[in-house]
Simulated scan of single mutants.
Amino acid sequence: MRIYPINILNSGDRLLNSGGRLLNSGGRLLNSGGRLLNSGGRLLNSGGRLLNSGGRLLNSGGRLLNSGGRLLNSGGRLLNSGGRLLNSGGRLLNSGGRLLNSGDRLLNLSSG
């Protein structure tokens, strides 16, 4: 699934990526009170905004990459279990939320 400069709102529901690729390029993926599950797949946020506001974002055995975008975890839970979470050149903001890593790697790379 590819998300171009459009908005996807997941409000109180579930969005599942299992073994595939979920690409957000320049758009907004808003997980407000919902559950976004990346299981064994790749979730790529490139130049877009991935907003986890009061929701749960679970990366289980997959890869979650934030490259040049914004990953905002405001009052939500971002769980990395057995996978890789990479923030490269983007912003990972955790305001009043929980960022839990019981997985393989959590990398925050920034320039400067």
Rank of each mutant, 00 (worst) to 15 (best):
R49P: 07
N45W: 02
P5N: 15
L30Y: 02
S11K: 08
S111E: 10
G82R: 06
L72G: 04
R63C: 05
S88C: 03
N108F: 05
R77W: 13
L29E: 12
R42L: 15
L22V: 03
M1D: 11
G90L: 04
S74N: 02
R56S: 15
N38F: 08
S18F: 11
R49L: 15
N38R: 07
I6C: 11
L57P: 13
R77K: 10
G82C: 06
S53D: 14
G47T: 00
S60M: 07
L30E: 15
N10Y: 11
S95C: 00
L23G: 11
G61N: 02
R42C: 05
R28C: 03
G112C: 01
R49V: 08
L16P: 00
S110D: 07
G69Q: 04
R49Q: 15
L106N: 02
N10P: 09
I6F: 02
S111M: 00
G33H: 03
S74F: 03
R84A: 00
N66S: 07
G26E: 06
N45K: 01
S32V: 13
G90S: 03
G26S: 14
G89E: 03
D13Y: 09
R21P: 02
L30D: 15
N52T: 00
L57K: 09
N66L: 04
S67F: 05
R70W: 11
S11W: 01
G103N: 09
L86G: 05
N10D: 13
G90Q: 04
L85S: 04
G62I: 05
N108D: 10
L51A: 14
L43K: 05
L36I: 11
R2M: 10
R98D: 11
N108Y: 12
L99V: 03
S39E: 12
S46W: 00
N87Q: 13
R14A: 14
N66V: 00
L30R: 15
G68S: 06
G27N: 02
N94A: 05
N7C: 00
G27W: 13
R2K: 13
G75K: 10
L93W: 01
L23T: 10
L109K: 01
G112H: 14
S110E: 11
N10I: 04
S46N: 04
G54Y: 08
N31E: 13
L109C: 12
L29S: 06
S111C: 03
N31V: 09
P5V: 03
N31I: 07
G90R: 04
G48T: 09
G33P: 04
N10F: 02
G41F: 07
N17D: 05
S81Q: 14
S81M: 07
N66T: 02
